[in-house]
Design a protein around this nucleic acid. Structure first.
Lengths: 338, 338
DNA sequence: CTTGGCACTCTGCCGGCCGGAGTGCCAAGG
DNA sequence: CCTTGGCACTCCGGCCGGCAGAGTGCCAAG
């Protein structure tokens, strides 16, 4: 079947281009891969592939380079799962098992991902919205000042200092503490917000209760932590010094814009375990020559948040996909246990 | 005085080179700066400055470029304090006043510094060692599982989940909680460590107490947070696309190595309010063409931690110094209030 | 000590040339 | 109908020489 061979040619082009970083010609192709045909035949196939838009040539009579459409076909139909090496698996378990808290898990994941893929890694902190309230603690710093600590099931801790505008004795404090915990503990954030709002709406309450509940509500609906992400591995961009203007500069600029990164990660959250966005498929003109490989993670079947890597379209997709998936799975398992 | 004029020439060279990024010649110099002498005179001065090692020429008969020694003289003797514009002052106050907790302060500072200086900014998290224990909270997740929350005066919160290996009823839990707090609250970390150690050494204690105290000790002596830093503004490196290999690549690589960054910040912590390291003055060969401007910050007179910026030797020193100092002061004031 | 003049040097740029790599097409063969 | 060898063609990248411009160093005069 010539159709089959064409796909083989496309795959060979992608693989070669990814490693050599140079347009690949028909002769080099038949030499490096054992396709048992002549360069001329490959040229015909290449012409066909070019007509269909899968590859292109930078200049007349240079080698061919995959287009975004070509990469897309490659990842959709030509990618065989590349299992992680045992060394890589060991790296994942040893690095992640050492984590002491949520922050640590996230930070280690970023480092791990960027090392495994040699690309820029992004890990989103678990969102508040799906987590439940584990505990609310009130600590008296002074008679009229409290430290509020809000502990969530995902391991996030939010803290606020509040001025009460009145003094509170120990008994009142402990009453307030248990009232608040009765309303909030064990509930989803949204439920806790409702219950706390009810608490102050129900009847006349002290100004202390008032301000404490208000601050809690604000801390809960504060979506800052929804938007929090960790980024790492920017040093890997140094490898792409050649295509500085086309690939490195825009990506470097995007890395500062956490909102943009979140959108990149979040896009196409169709139930797929792994999503791959290639080049111009995204909304950002600037990032037309970068790709994103992302996955959801979270305890159990829940998808709390996302993690992934960003790199030039010319990247090792099978390797990146395998690494992202493996890390996402392992992080999920860790969160499961906690 | 010809000596005075020579310094003026050096200053002019530095200023011009920083803005134009190109070697500066004698003619352009007298035109742009109002030194009332002829190019020939300036050439003589330049020859002298070159003999003394303050400037150099990239090629015979190109303009002159400052050496590290030249920059050093510039910052030590020729820099007049450049006051912040009111817009900049306002930016500092509005951005930093919005911070809700310590993490937020640090992150906002990084963003602010990198925006003000258009360089890469680094902020070290306050160290544990000088802070005191504000409160220890124990939350029962299950009869045999506790969540430990360690709250420090700097606003840091450390949390750990512990398996007790036995069940604990409410009363025992509250006893344990008050015992631990009696020992630790209000103490410096080092003192708290000693007091807690004594607590278990003093007599036979339950396995629950044992494991809780051990975990607390570990969390306190865990110097992970000593080494924590926040980095931002890497996008500013994009401006230096030309000198990619000499300046951007090594810096990009160093940014991942937080240990290296810490050392850069920490170096030369001689009581000076602001330290400036220029080019090869540091221990890292790779970073021979980058400079660091750093300052200490912390509540009151205490220097808890450091913050600063990193950039190419060819940077705007007066501006950077002013920005770093202003941010350090304001952050200190905020920590003072908290 | 300063200044104008002058010869010198080096870089950066432009245009032309050439070799190499790779293609597209064609005609022959299975 | 597909494959293959041959061949002419195109285009990039590197190399060379010449040229203008910028800047210097030196010298002699003020």
């Amino acid at each position: 079947m010539q159709e089959e061979r064409r796909l083989a040619v496309l795959r060979a082009i992608v693989e070669d281009y990814v490693t050599t970083e140079e347009p690949v010609g028909s002769k080099a192709l038949v030499e490096r891969h054992g396709l048992g045909v002549s360069p001329a035949t490959v040229r015909n196939d290449m012409a066909a592939l070019e007509d269909e838009g899968y590859i292109t040539q930078p200049h007349t009579s240079a080698g061919r380079v995959p287009t975004d459409k070509g990469y897309r076909l490659f990842v959709d139909r030509l990618t065989t799962v590349k299992p992680m090496s045992t060394a890589e698996k060991r790296a994942i378990t040893t690095i992640l098992d050492g984590a002491v808290d949520l922050d640590d898990v996230v930070q280690r994941s970023v480092r791990l991902l960027s090392q495994l893929t040699r690309q820029v890694a992004i890990v989103q902190y678990p969102t508040l919205s799906r987590s439940t309230v584990r505990h609310v603690e009130l600590v008296a710093l002074a008679p009229n000042r409290l430290l509020l600590v809000l502990i969530l099931s995902t391991g996030r801790v939010e803290q606020r200092v509040v001025e009460l505008g009145m003094d509170l004795d120990d008994e009142a404090l402990s009453d307030l503490r248990s009232a608040v915990n009765r309303a909030a503990t064990g509930q989803l954030i949204a439920e806790a917000v409702a219950a706390l709002a009810e608490l102050v709406a129900d009847g006349p309450v002290s100004s202390a209760t008032q301000v404490v509940v208000e601050t809690l509500l604000e801390a809960m609906s504060d979506h800052r932590s929804d938007e929090r992400i960790a980024v790492g591995g920017a040093a890997n961009l140094a490898r792409y010094g050649d295509s500085f203007d086309s690939a490195v500069r825009p990506l470097l600029e995007a890395l500062e814009e956490h909102v943009v990164l979140l959108k990149l990660l979040g896009e196409a959250s169709t139930g797929e375990p792994i999503t791959v966005r290639i080049g111009h498929e995204g909304p950002y003109q600037q990032l037309a020559s970068t790709s994103v490989v992302a996955a959801c993670y979270g305890p159990g079947e829940e998808a709390f948040a996302r993690l992934g890597i960003v790199g030039p379209t010319r990247m090792d997709y099978p390797g990146s996909i395998a690494a992202v998936r493996a890390v996402a799975r392992y992080v999920s398992r860790i969160l499961d246990e906690a």
